[in-house]
Design a protein around this nucleic acid. Sequence first.
DNA 1: TTCTGGAATATTGTATACCAGAGGATCGGG
DNA 2: CCCGATCCTCTGGTATACAATATTCCAGAA
Lengths: 249, 249
Amino acid sequence: MMTNNTRSGGAAAAQDRAGSEPAPRIAIQPIDTSFSFKNKAYAALKNVIVSMDIYRSRNDIRLDERQLAHDFGISRTPVREAMAQLEREGFVRSVPRRGVYVVRKTKEEVIQLITAWAALESMAARLITQNAKDEDIARLRNMFATFEGGQVRAHLDEYSEVNIEFHQTIIRMSENTVLLDLAENLFTHMRMIRRKTIGEKNRADKSIRDHMNIIEALEARDTARAETLVRDHALGLAEHVARYADYLD
Amino acid sequence: MMTNNTRSGGAAAAQDRAGSEPAPRIAIQPIDTSFSFKNKAYAALKNVIVSMDIYRSRNDIRLDERQLAHDFGISRTPVREAMAQLEREGFVRSVPRRGVYVVRKTKEEVIQLITAWAALESMAARLITQNAKDEDIARLRNMFATFEGGQVRAHLDEYSEVNIEFHQTIIRMSENTVLLDLAENLFTHMRMIRRKTIGEKNRADKSIRDHMNIIEALEARDTARAETLVRDHALGLAEHVARYADYLD
DNA sequence: TTCTGGAATATTGTATACCAGAGGATCGGG
DNA sequence: CCCGATCCTCTGGTATACAATATTCCAGAA
């Protein structure tokens, strides 16, 4: 959580034109001091971890501090500080005097992950029915109604990027940054296993239908129903994983 | 999350007695290598942060790396690595070339915190009704029924240690470590503001009644009701904070 | 051949040195 | 007395040096 040290500050620069300075002063904005090597390394490392296919090979994957520091062109220190953060988030595990290894979630842990996600997102749905503006909910429909047409559906399995984006949007619409931060982490973990897609074609159809029902419940401001639908949708995935995802662990 | 590098291993040593070795081999267990300075510093720092009364003074509290390192008797490096972790968890904020400051949550953020907590704990309640053993639920009642008697009630405001412990126990009983880890962090934040207790004596009574109702719903394995009660109990606190906690920010 | 022991090597954990930038103090001019 | 430029100090950011331990591999004995 709290990824950004840069507390926005984007639009703030354009404001002072009533100031008495005649100098043109073209578009100078406070230089972004937040991109320290530590933060850059964090982003880069996270990217590396997410984009590698952990679950294909069974061998543990080790991250070499020295090698990474060298590749990034920096020293070990900021790399280690980034590692410490990733470790706290559960992405890597540091074994003393041995190395840091990318964490491979067990089936059990994935189920727990999805369950927690269900909790967060259903709360988000609740908040949306109470606080969101109609136009925002409408935008949600527009964003994902394209898939109702037909052909794109094939790609909408539980781990696809569009699917995750839908759920991420739900969370974001809750306007609760704590929920967002927590869920962001869980989604990142989910992205790491999405390549291991489970067959079962009809689940994609069900997923779309679920999404549509969710959107309708949100539009109707039906708090209880929205909450329930979102929760059960996620828990359904958890159950599916429990039953069919034997390739984990 | 993932605080422990020591993957148990406790009971595993006593197992192999069918092995052909006649040697007694008395109770050797792997020495705990996981308490590096980094981890020690993390625990110590967190303790320092939690135990200081952030919300009394309005001045920002700065943590001096050098001073802390000196007090701990170690160098800055492990202290900084611990700081990096605490920063990622939202406890401190590091301003480049200025210092690292303890984060003071705004009223808005506290409300969001409690809302997220409501989401996690209500899911925990759901899981308990489905998976927990009767005896565990019974233990929950025994643990907190002492307060029904009378005099201890006065101290049971929303921020008291016993109150937090009750909710923490609920989460723990879900047997979902992800929920537990996420909630643990939220609770830690809550502990930091618990000293600023709000008056309103009758809330304590309501709190106890709520707890009893929750326990009963769990005992009855009434999933929907338990979930709702837990959620609304927490959201009630959120609303209370929204209304009366003007001292924040 | 197989197992034990230890030296060589590799890699992390920790300490220290150095750097750049922010803020305040000081000093000088008006 | 007030204001501003400049220096000085203090802080976190980064790099590097050193210490400690795990792993590997080979030699030698049973």
